[in-house]
Design a binder for these strands. Structure first.
Lengths: 229, 229
DNA sequence: AAGTACGAAATAATATACGATTATTGTCCC
DNA sequence: GGGACAATAATCGTATATTATTTCGTACTT
């Protein structure tokens, strides 16, 4: 559930290009290639045992997803995210994820809810001896349950792209903003109850959106505070 | 205002690849290449006076935007949109466009509003001797005024992609659903008044979203009706 | 010693070439 | 006359080769 997910099925499975795409994407999302890392076509091509053409193609696809930045005659680097970019990404994600969660909600089964609640319990547990990496992974698992049933594949794809983008930063907000992780767990439980109660789509959408906005706000306050100190 | 718009500035301007991308995209959006049209790499390459490699790259970028469909060892064709796809696209657009409009609203100036109102007056005029092509173009101009000020470039880009996708179908809903064009013009005026009155972001977002949902619903009813007749 | 100009190395961008896969057409057999 | 199979053509996928651009180091000048 944690691995890279692409909703729109590619009709090019098995091609070297696809292979390169998957391999490089995985390295970025899992953190082997960190932001700023310089992606040299020839090097990657050699690593993967293919020529540069498919690699180039793969990297341009990743550019379209925002995971790498490409500059003419210069090359590709793994995208960093400055505070402004972070804001844009989180804001966009709050919108599409909120909508996806709302559309998904009526299709979520009782076992799904139970599974999400179990994950959230682990998260609460994780608050003691805090492990940001594990917490972040659990957080993704939790939200996956909520939005993965979304019947609109385009919308779901946008959600995945946002998550991938955030995942490419290893640093989660939870690491930087004390108390946010705790609040987050509580909001999760509230979200689950809302869905269980069969609340309307609007209510669920707003709750899901606010949940993410709250994370963004926490980050911004922290950033602002650090700036003025 | 009507032409193809890409928000995220490409750092590859001037390259053959970029040139091919722009050329092919324009041909699709303006309707030279209609849905189902077979995009043969060698042919396009010759037309543009470049080799196949940049063309291939361009086409894969268009694939990522949903404008073309690529199948392994078969080739690329301009994407059609079946009813299901149309639903997904419109639904997604209703979400991102609604949010973009809400974020844009506080930044819209009085002259902008006046311009939008003028466009809408033209649309109303256009209702007499109905010209779907012109009406559709004016419709895009109108909405551009509303969302183009959106300060979040990622979100704005998603809106542009949705519009491009719809533009690649020449057929607008207005052509097929009698009365929808008329309703649309009225909803536009209501939207403008809402923005002028300084309404809250939520109200504007919902209104903008419903405006698009109404177009979708009109289409679906029509489609459903035709099916059962 | 600092700055600049030049050149070599690295790398990207594009072109060309070839093998692989799929579509098409024609022919043979029933 | 129609269907199956084979040959051919069209087109894609990838590799290799060439060209253009940038970067970095070095030597030369002031």
């Amino acid at each position: 559930m944690t691995e890279t997910a692409t909703t729109v099925p590619s009709k090019t499975a098995g091609s070297k290009s696809e292979q390169a795409y998957t391999a490089v994407k995985a390295r970025i999302v899992e953190g082997t290639y960190t932001p700023g890392y310089r992606l040299v076509l020839a090097k990657i091509a050699e690593d993967l045992g293919v020529s540069v053409v498919p690699v180039r193609e793969a990297i341009r696809r990743l550019e379209a997803e925002g995971l790498v930045t490409f500059e003419r005659n210069i090359g590709a680097t793994v995208s960093g995210i400055d505070p402004t970019e972070y804001l844009y990404t989180m804001q966009t994600l709050s919108i599409v994820e909120g909508a996806a969660t709302a559309l998904s909600a009526p299709l979520i089964s009782a076992p799904d809810i139970a599974r999400a609640r179990a994950v959230n319990a682990e998260m609460r547990d994780c608050l003691q001896h805090f492990d940001p990496v594990r917490f972040t992974r659990l957080n993704q698992d939790f939200h996956s349950v909520l939005f993965e049933q979304c019947p609109n594949p385009h919308l779901l794809d946008l959600v995945h792209r946002g998550w991938n983008r955030l995942a490419s930063l290893r640093s989660s907000t939870f690491r930087f903003v004390p108390g946010r992780a705790h609040d987050s767990v509580n909001e999760h439980e509230a979200l689950l109850q809302l869905i269980e109660s069969g609340a309307g789509a609007d209510a669920i959408e707003q709750a899901a959106r606010r949940h993410r906005s709250a994370t963004l706000d926490a980050y911004l306050q922290q950033a602002n505070h650090q700036e003025h100190s």
